[in-house]
């Protein structure tokens, strides 16, 4: 195991985050705060409680999830796409670094950043609505699992993308809608039965509900299902990454 390489990649990726502090940390925190003000404060005050949870608090887990998904994907995808784009990938490919070490460095850094952001947003949320976390360990588990899984997913997108457009397409056209339709801002019980069933095919439902359960002990789907789905998605992403490095897909001629 070339731990020096893992460390080098991790440190340089984290340095990129701190170099762009405003864009990396401030902007997601501000945009999430806006959600709290609009949905939690302005609209939430006119909304009924859901399963005994004030609407403003109810949306917190969903908002954090939205942030984790988009940030993990955009960080990890940009992290590996950038060296491909400017050509510095030659160094990674010629170095005595295994696929596992490359992934640990890039995905580790992207996930770390997402976790930090998630915690910052939770603290920010606490300023707007009183937060109570029923199952802190499960909360941390979902926070970490989601960050790692979607950083892996972002890494895959970054390798697949051969232009900036593709880099943006997946987060904007797939992840964002799935998150909005995945019960981030509502309980899926408010939907007609048919749409409830359709929604169950949306993987984000399981993430949001698992996360919500860790806060309030309530969820639309069982927390066990949520965990199982998260692990399944993690497994799929790991399999794809393994395949990418085995075949050299979009990395090696």
């Amino acid at each position: 195991m070339n731990l020096h390489a893992v460390r080098a990649i991790y440190v340089s990726e984290m340095a990129r985050t701190f170099r762009t502090l405003l864009q990396s940390i401030a902007s997601p925190v501000i945009s999430t705060s806006l959600y709290f003000v609009v949905f939690g404060g302005a609209i939430g005050s006119r909304m009924p409680e859901i399963d005994g949870v004030a609407y403003g608090a109810f949306i917190v887990p969903g908002l954090v999830m939205l942030l984790l998904l988009t940030e993990s994907i955009s960080n990890a995808s940009f992290g590996i796409y950038f060296p491909k784009f400017v050509g510095t990938i030659y160094e990674l490919l010629s170095a005595p670094v295994s696929a596992l070490e490359i992934v640990l460095g890039f995905v580790g850094a992207a996930a770390t950043k997402s976790i930090i952001l998630g915690l910052i947003v939770l603290l920010t949320a606490n300023l707007f609505v009183p937060l109570h976390i029923a199952h802190p360990l499960v909360m941390v588990l979902f926070l970490v699992l989601t960050s790692v899984t979607f950083s892996l997913f972002g890494f895959i997108i970054g390798i697949w993308a051969d232009g900036f457009e593709k880099l943006m397409v997946v987060p904007m056209l797939i992840v964002m809608p799935l998150t909005f339709l995945g019960g981030s801002f509502y309980s899926i019980q408010v939907l007609p039965p048919f749409w409830q069933t359709v929604t169950l095919f949306n993987p984000v439902v399981y993430l949001v509900n698992g996360f919500r359960w860790s806060f309030f002990g309530i969820a639309d789907v069982h927390v066990g299902h949520s965990l199982a789905m998260t692990f399944a998605f993690l497994g799929i992403c790991l399999a794809i990454v393994t395949w990418i490095f085995k075949t050299g897909y979009r990395l090696k001629a």
């Binding site: 020096h4 440190v11 340089s12 160094e91 005595p96």
Partner: peptide, 10 residues
């Protein structure tokens, strides 16, 4: 320094 680390050197 990054390059050195990448090639497995302290």
């Amino acid at each position: 320094g990054f390059s050195r680390g990448l090639f497995g050197k302290r």
